[in-house]
């Protein structure tokens, strides 16, 4: 995973550990998950089910659904979730490798 820091955090506060796609991340407690992941250098949140194109947050206000991630087994909008200790986050499971078996 690339960790190019394209964003800067202006302040620092208490942090908690979460898991992102199997690796540990330390994010500000209670912060917006999408913002925290961006600031931690997560560049790609998911790949689209249609063309597998990479995506990351676009609107930050819960309307575009490009920041979808899977949290504890449920697909959620990262920009509408607050960071809590021990969250298990991953790219959403979409249709497997091959397309259109039907």
């Amino acid at each position: 995973m690339k960790h190019v820091l394209t964003f800067l955090e202006l302040e620092s506060g208490p942090r908690v550990d979460v898991t992102w796609d199997g690796t540990a991340l330390s994010l500000p407690e209670g912060s917006n998950l999408a913002a925290a992941m961006l600031a931690a250098g997560v560049g790609v949140f998911r790949h689209t089910p249609v063309s597998k194109a990479p995506r990351s947050p676009f609107c930050m206000m819960g309307t575009c659904f490009d920041c979808l991630v899977e949290i504890d087994g449920v697909t959620r909008q990262a920009c509408m979730v607050e960071v809590t200790e021990g969250m298990v986050i991953s790219q959403p499971q979409e249709l497997g490798g091959q397309v259109n078996e039907m």
Partner: peptide
């Protein structure tokens, strides 16, 4: 929103 809510800015 990144700035208002999270104090996160693009470099």
């Amino acid at each position: 929103i990144l700035l208002k809510q999270s104090g996160v800015v693009a470099k």
